Simulated scan of single mutants.
Amino acid sequence: MLLRLLGRVAATALLGTTAACSGSDAGHWVGDYVTVNDFEAVRGWGADNTGLVRDHAHSGQYAVFVGPQREYSLTYDLPLGEASVHTLKGVAVEAWVYLPSPQAAASLEVQVRLPGEENKLGYAGRLPLPEQVKETGKWTRVRQEFAFPVGLPADAHLRIFMWRNGSAAETVYLDDLRVKALE
Rank of each mutant, 00 (worst) to 15 (best):
Leu3Tyr: 11
Leu6Cys: 12
Val9Lys: 13
Val9Gln: 14
Ala13Glu: 13
Ala13Thr: 08
Ala13Cys: 14
Leu14His: 12
Thr17Arg: 14
Thr18Asp: 07
Ala20Met: 09
Cys21Ser: 13
Gly23Lys: 09
Gly27His: 01
His28Lys: 15
Asp32Pro: 00
Asp32Gly: 03
Tyr33Gln: 07
Val34Pro: 00
Thr35Tyr: 09
Val36Asp: 10
Asn37Gly: 04
Asp38Tyr: 12
Phe39Gly: 04
Gly44Asp: 12
Gly44Phe: 11
Gly44Val: 06
Gly46Trp: 11
Gly46Arg: 13
Asn49Asp: 15
Thr50Lys: 13
Leu52Tyr: 13
Arg54Val: 08
His56Ser: 07
His56Cys: 09
His58Phe: 13
Ser59Trp: 10
Gln61Ala: 13
Tyr62Ala: 06
Val64Cys: 11
Val64Glu: 11
Phe65Ala: 07
Pro68Gln: 15
Gln69Lys: 14
Arg70Ser: 08
Arg70Ala: 04
Thr75Tyr: 04
Tyr76Ala: 03
Asp77Gly: 07
Leu78Cys: 06
Val85Phe: 09
Val85Gly: 14
Leu88Trp: 00
Leu88Ile: 03
Leu88Phe: 04
Gly90Cys: 08
Val91Trp: 01
Val91Asn: 03
Ala92Glu: 09
Glu94Gln: 13
Val97Lys: 07
Leu99Cys: 07
Ser101Ile: 02
Pro102Cys: 06
Gln103Trp: 02
Gln103Cys: 00
Ala104Ile: 01
Leu108Gln: 00
Glu109Cys: 10
Val110Gln: 00
Gly116Asp: 07
Asn119Glu: 11
Leu127Tyr: 02
Pro130Phe: 06
Glu131Gln: 15
Thr136Arg: 11
Thr136Lys: 14
Gly137Gln: 04
Arg141Gly: 01
Arg143Gly: 06
Arg143Lys: 13
Glu145Tyr: 01
Glu145Val: 05
Glu145Asp: 13
Phe146Asp: 00
Phe148Thr: 01
Asp155Gly: 01
Asp155Gln: 10
Ile160Ala: 03
Phe161Asp: 02
Trp163Ser: 11
Arg164Met: 08
Gly166Thr: 09
Glu170Thr: 08
Asp175Ser: 03
Arg178Met: 12
Ala181His: 00
